[in-house]
Nucleic acid binder design. Structure first.
Lengths: 339, 339
DNA sequence: TTCAAATTTGAAATCGCTTTGAATGGTTTC
DNA sequence: GAAACCATTCAAAGCGATTTCAAATTTGAA
């Protein structure tokens, strides 16, 4: 069923039918109704490619994932957010996987040259992420989830990692903790740097010296967090509290504490960052987990909305969102044990 | 840079340039080289939408995820497999998320009518999955990951769940276990039924009665498996072995055993199904985990390849793959304890 | 040298839609 | 009754590629 067929069927020109369906004002209301009904009844849908070719809008937003590191619960949630916000609109999600940075660059170039997508969702930035410059140069609009230093004006959405960790750290310091382990994210990622900055700020405010041995960089994997927590627990004096970068990290610390015979919330405190996974509820854990909380799914949904706004003509310079992060205190964080 | 521009630049017609780039035989070798070089140098890429309109091929494969249940480590791995196999080809992945079955149907209709995709990757089938009929009726080629009963001939790839569990169960029975808990997947899913069938077959072969109380249906979530394992451990006589449907399930059982003061591999045995997550190695666990193993990432990659073959004209009736499943015995499965 | 065949190139039609610019018919105004 | 004006509708020209069919050039054989 092409537009032509529908028009013929109705005894109208393609022009009129097209206009009727697209809500142009210069078409008779009676005709519009007749056309709409016929279209619905006959199941007419404009051919996506013809439509895109004619309008120049590509109707899809690109998302590139690094096979090695990007796949995981976080990305899954982020995807779910994007998907939820976008399938109701007219934009499709076109996604690709790559292994190397070179491949990623190649994909962006291809997407730009072939005009396959009208925007990109960029994520997991490093401190000075070259992809911002690249996409700008290619003329591909994009929204960055996270932040980076770049000369080019660009749209981004991030959570206040620095503020969150600063508050969490301050809270632990208030409780008397002096040696606090920071199980941070991968080195080089902006959010990791921001978190460390918040951590240092809080320490500095109380003149507690910064100890490099108490800071680790790791992926969000239970097992790796477990080992790192174990080795930190061997330090003397040993840390009495941990800041865990993710819930998976926290689970690893849990295990290390249990094996060491330490009681969570009494001997050692934990505050974890909670990205709000539906299947991993900080409140249901035993003991319940104190967290800095921000839904990564919500962030994904919002990024998608921002893409839509960008498409609608909103200037990139006005698309900057910094989300505050909740600090939710539960049982896993308590006063430091007496020496 | 359009084809027209490139042709003009070279002093050739669009026809010749197009042919040169697409490897048609009737173009002079010297011309072809000249064209190819210019295209590369000037960064020419055919406009994806124009190309698709002209050829009729849509250049994308659709993948629909249910927001509520499909997102998770398994889907992530599956996606990674698809992505890896497809980004090197000329097919893009277009994905949508839905909440309900009705929405999913609507999406397929839309994709079919608008010819946005040239094929679908269908997954997580139920025993008699209506989507097979729907897609057939819509004329959308697809490959099913899993199996279902359907009147329509269709392409599928599945692993031998029944055989795997039958072997695992038989092995446990050989070791003297008589009461074996089956922590199966969600009710209604084909793979769950197949696994139960394998389980029953093995029991039947030794005249061990089937006990409904020893079978549970659950999603692959650690926490839920934990609770179900706990309640099964309260049965008397209590099960001396578990078949865990996923590694997450196994982790839940681990926890339940530890809390119950039971030693894994001695008091209670486990054989888990391992979908091969890069971050969760059965071999590294303590004790190491006996598993039925089949990489879901590899399955994703293969499904993508099959889609490509389908596009190339391979008849659906010849696209049926049933993968055997390894049984890897490690420390978590041992002889049944003496009564 | 000539003519048919083979090789190489190009003009124009096509894919299914949007959109420009013109045409049609009916009202209103003077 | 003619002019001016609206409200509708349509024919045709794009969008940027592929592909059909015809034309031009070379080649080879007689």
């Amino acid at each position: 069923m092409r537009l032509k067929d529908l028009a013929q069927h109705l005894g109208l020109s393609q022009t009129t039918v097209s206009r009727a369906l697209n809500g142009y004002p210069e078409v008779n209301e009676a005709t519009r109704v007749r056309v709409s009904e016929a279209a619905l009844r006959l199941g007419y849908r404009p051919n996506a490619n013809a439509l895109r070719l004619a309008t120049g809008r590509s109707g899809a937003v690109g998302l590139v994932l690094r096979g090695s590191s990007d796949f995981g619960p976080h990305m899954t949630e982020f995807l779910a957010g994007i998907g939820g916000a976008l399938t109701h609109g007219e934009l499709d999600i076109l996604f690709s996987t790559v292994e190397t940075y070179e491949e990623e660059v190649a994909i962006y170039r291809r997407l730009a040259a072939s005009q396959s997508v009208s925007a990109i969702i960029l994520h997991s930035p490093t401190i000075a992420d070259e992809r911002v410059g690249l996409l700008t140069e290619l003329g591909l609009p994009f929204v960055l989830h996270g932040r980076t230093h770049a000369d080019q004006a660009h749209a981004w959405l991030d959570i206040d990692n620095e503020g969150a960790i600063e508050r969490a750290t301050s809270h632990l310091l208030d409780l008397g903790h002096k040696r606090i382990g920071l199980l941070n994210g991968l080195k080089g990622r902006t959010f990791s740097e921001h978190r460390e900055a918040g951590y240092r700020k809080a320490l500095q405010a109380r003149d507690i010296p910064f100890d490099r041995a108490l800071v680790g960089h790791l992926p969000w994997i239970d097992e790796i967090a477990f080992r790192m927590a174990q080795s930190m627990l061997e330090l003397r004096p040993r840390p009495t509290a941990f800041l865990a970068g993710s819930m998976m990290t926290a689970l690893g610390v849990f295990r290390a504490l249990r094996i060491a015979g330490l009681t969570l919330g009494r001997d050692v405190s934990i505050i974890a960052h909670d990205d709000v996974f539906p299947y991993l509820n900080a409140d249901n854990m035993v003991p319940s987990m104190s967290t800095t909380r921000s839904s990564i799914r919500a962030a994904g949904a919002r990024v998608a909305e921002l893409i839509l706004q960008l498409q609608a003509g909103k200037p990139v310079t006005s698309v900057h969102e910094l989300w505050p992060v909740d600090l939710v205190l539960r049982q896993s964080s308590g006063p430091a044990p007496a020496d």
